[in-house]
């Protein structure tokens, strides 16, 4: 464990909690892509099946359980409890265009051709693009609530910090996972445009709205 991985995990946790609290406190999931949240629930489920097969540490297990639990809680709030506030018309990204190619890629390019390893690879690839329905929704409506931008910033920072973690681990541990690194780079690049808007607008107290 190094500082980049720890802060990355905490940033990820913060993102998940911010989103849950935002929906819970406002009793509304307006502006939130339910499709992205379903994709994240799939990502965690596919990746953390190893909860059943291997034990790493108490930290590792508890974080996995919290991530999975929060992901399903978020999906429940959007599609059941506060369904009336869900903005389905603007959440029109076609997720099959992500899931099908990513599934094919996971079968073709993986470390080992075994079910659990392919599911892990699938989750890594899928996570890298799972935010696209949310970003698509914001580009469609042209704006996002400030709390939603904090969520996106924390979520984007998490994988960015993991990139530093992988550089660290490469130098100090000889650890190198090509699949995670390439997917992590793709994931971070997808946030670059948003990071720019976050720094130039939201941090200066303005609401994030896109030019028409």
């Amino acid at each position: 464990m190094n500082i980049f991985r720890l802060t990355g995990d905490l940033s990820h946790l913060a993102a998940i909690i911010i989103l849950l609290l935002k929906i819970w406190k406002s009793r509304s999931c307006a502006g939130i892509s339910g499709k992205s949240q379903i994709l994240f629930a799939i990502v965690f489920t596919a990746r953390y099946l190893d909860l059943l097969t291997s034990f790493i540490s108490v930290y590792n297990t508890s974080m996995k359980v919290i991530y999975i639990g929060c992901a399903y809680a978020t999906v429940y709030l959007i599609y059941a409890k506060f369904r009336a506030t869900y903005d389905g018309n603007h959440d029109s990204f076609r997720v099959e265009f992500l899931v099908v190619p990513v599934g094919g890629l996971a079968v073709l390019i993986n470390h080992t051709f075994s079910p659990l390893e392919i599911l892990w690879t699938f989750s890594i690839y899928l996570e890298s693009v799972a935010i696209l329905p949310q970003l698509f929704m914001i580009s469609k409506t042209g704006e996002a609530e400030t709390i939603t931008t904090h969520y996106l910033f924390c979520l984007g920072m998490y994988r960015t910090l993991y990139l530093f973690n992988w550089v660290w681990r490469f130098y100090f541990e000889g650890f190198f996972d090509m699949i995670a690194i390439v997917a992590g780079l793709v994931q971070t690049v997808l946030y670059c445009d948003f990071f720019y808007l976050y720094v130039t607008k939201v941090l200066k107290g303005k609401k994030l709205s896109l030019p028409a």
Partner: peptide
């Protein structure tokens, strides 16, 4: 089926 090696990252 062979199990994948444990991965310590989240």
């Amino acid at each position: 089926f062979p199990l994948r090696p444990p991965k310590d990252e989240l």
